[in-house]
């Protein structure tokens, strides 16, 4: 665990600095109240009314996030395999991973063919 202590130390330093700066920002600056200034910025026109809860977003981004999870897990499987690669005897490790990658590639080809990677 000793290896992780310096990361925590740097993290505490970083968090302290960032939090201090964010709090200081609201103290050091001037305060001049103006009704229009407190609206959401929209190039001088009336701000778009936001639905309750913060706004909607295109479902496209949701699909990207789901695809990311699938392929990120593939990467997580690749890392230990790569680190231990020289310890495999024969071609076992290679063939095993090739089969796995091909399996994922089938899903990838499917997503591509169905237009899941298109961005209009």
């Amino acid at each position: 665990m000793d290896l992780y202590i310096p990361v925590v130390v740097l993290g505490v330093l970083a968090f302290g600095f960032a939090a201090f700066s964010v709090v200081m920002g609201s103290l050091t600056g001037p305060k001049r109240w103006n009704r229009a200034k407190l609206d959401a910025y929209e190039c001088g026109i009336e701000p778009t009314p936001q639905p309750v809860g913060g706004g909607r977003f295109p479902v496209k981004y949701y699909l990207t996030a789901m695809l990311f999870i699938v392929f990120d897990i593939e990467i997580i499987f690749l890392y230990p395999w790569a680190v231990a690669f020289d310890q495999f005897r024969g071609l076992f490790g290679l063939i095993e991973m090739a089969l796995f990658i091909v399996t994922v590639l089938v899903a990838y080809a499917y997503v591509w063919r169905r237009g899941g990677l298109e961005w209009d």
Partner: peptide
């Protein structure tokens, strides 16, 4: 931020960085 520009920017950034 509850602002359309900020929301779109945030979404774009997340999609780009994870991709």
């Amino acid at each position: 931020s509850r602002s359309p520009y900020a929301l779109l920017g945030g979404l774009r950034s997340s999609a780009q960085v994870i991709s």
